[in-house]
Amino acid sequence: MGTEETTAGHIQELRRGTVVLACLVRLGTPDYGYALLESLNALGIIVDANTLYPLLRRMEKQGLLESEWNTEDARPRKFYRTSPAGEELAVVLTKDWRRIDAALTGLTRGESK
């Protein structure tokens, strides 16, 4: 396996969990999939549509997201929003993310305990 492939694989693994947290936080304001995709990418949270849509369905199945169809426009759109269970999980994940970030910041500065 080449260096670029190895790096890409590790970056993908690192992003995988962060996309879940980003969706939970971002969907505190209801939105449809494509708008979510665009806003995450604009924020620098790069995710592919082929990854995001299955993730949204899985999170809905897990009770972390709720959805409803908006049929008022010419093209129906499925809007997602974070459920109460998803909000609780977002708090837990954010707390752990901050702990990990602080630990990694310390490591990269040469601080060890």
Rank of each mutant, 00 (worst) to 15 (best):
M1R: 00
M1F: 00
T3Q: 06
E4F: 15
E4G: 11
E4C: 12
T6H: 03
T6C: 02
T7M: 05
T7H: 09
T7C: 02
T7R: 10
G9I: 03
H10A: 04
H10S: 04
I11K: 13
I11W: 06
E13A: 14
E13Q: 14
L14K: 15
R16I: 07
G17E: 07
T18S: 15
T18F: 09
V19F: 12
V19C: 04
L21I: 04
C23I: 03
V25W: 00
V25G: 00
R26A: 05
L27E: 00
L27Q: 02
G28S: 10
G28P: 04
T29D: 01
T29E: 13
P30M: 00
P30S: 08
D31C: 14
D31P: 11
Y32F: 14
G33D: 04
Y34L: 15
Y34R: 15
Y34G: 07
A35C: 13
L36C: 11
L37I: 06
E38V: 13
S39T: 14
L40E: 00
L40K: 02
L40W: 05
N41T: 04
A42F: 07
A42C: 09
L43C: 11
L43Y: 09
G44P: 02
G44S: 11
G44M: 04
I46H: 14
V47H: 01
V47G: 04
V47T: 11
D48H: 12
D48M: 09
A49V: 11
N50V: 09
T51M: 10
L52Y: 01
L52S: 02
P54C: 05
P54D: 02
P54F: 00
L55K: 01
L55V: 03
L56E: 03
R57L: 09
R58S: 13
R58F: 02
M59E: 02
E60R: 14
G63I: 07
G63F: 00
L65F: 02
L65M: 06
E66H: 05
E66M: 07
E66S: 06
S67G: 05
E68C: 13
E68S: 13
E68I: 07
E68V: 07
W69R: 15
W69E: 14
T71F: 06
D73A: 14
A74S: 12
P76D: 06
P76V: 08
R77V: 05
K78Y: 02
K78G: 00
F79I: 07
F79Y: 15
S83A: 05
S83N: 01
A85R: 13
A85Y: 08
E87K: 12
L89N: 01
L89H: 07
L89K: 11
A90C: 08
A90K: 00
V91D: 00
V92G: 08
L93Y: 10
T94A: 10
K95S: 13
D96Q: 14
W97V: 03
W97K: 15
R98W: 11
R98Q: 12
I100A: 14
D101E: 15
A102E: 15
A103T: 10
T105L: 13
T105A: 12
T105D: 13
G106S: 07
G106N: 12
L107K: 11
T108W: 03
R109M: 13
R109V: 09
G110K: 03
E111L: 10
S112D: 09
K113I: 04
